[in-house]
Amino acid sequence: MSARQPTPIISVRNLVNRFGKQVVHDGVNLDVMPGEVLGIVGGSGTGKSVLLRTMLGLQRPASGQILIEDRDITRMSDAELLSVKRRYGVTFQHGALFSSLTVAENIQLPIREYFDASPQALESLTELRLRMVGLPVDAGGKLPSQLSGGMVKRAALARALALDPALLFLDEPTAGLDPISAAGFDELVTYLHRGLKLTIVMITHDLDTLLATCSRVAVLVDRKIVVDTLDGIMKNPHPWIQEYFHGPRARAAQAAV
């Protein structure tokens, strides 16, 4: 570990993923630095979700390494992987809240799973998570089916924050939200990032979110990844990237910013 150069919190090296004959990733390299917000974009079917699942250790790649805090999760035993999983929080595209549990129980589930906490402490910590994501405290007693789309996303984020992770993965955090809720969520992500010095990796299709929150952008094209700052990536000559950032919808989003 060199003293000056900050070590990446996640480092993906020469990642190859394939399903049968279809190669999804062919030598993907990506470094996520501590404290940054990295957006991952790409067309449908370019393997954004596969990349996320691989980084989460939910899926073993065909070859390549995923280093999280310098430890290769692709060669880990399940017990070791658990200790890494404990360090990050994830929100899934559709929230993935457990539908038979209340919001509060959803948030408490990981805490109960790992620690032996008293009911008072659980309640207090749940209140904190709910406040952090801007949900009213009485939302804790509700079932996921009683929440609006925006609230589901916030509740999912509250659950992802349950164990005080240093690293947060967000899969399409603003998909399916109205622009006002989406903007509110962007604000929330920025707020938490600023306040808690979280490292955030998010998959998003939403250009507004990308422009509002991300410091760097990774684009999945041609089974590889191109990473650059927002300004840098916009100047990238690749036709898909040009289309993405300079298409009619992109211009509207940028004009708004």
Binding site: I111, F115, D116, A117, S118, Q120, A121, L125, L163, D164
Partner: peptide
């Protein structure tokens, strides 16, 4: 004073 020591904190 981290969540890992929840019981001890309490």
């Amino acid at each position: 004073w981290c969540i890992d020591n929840l019981r001890e904190i309490e």
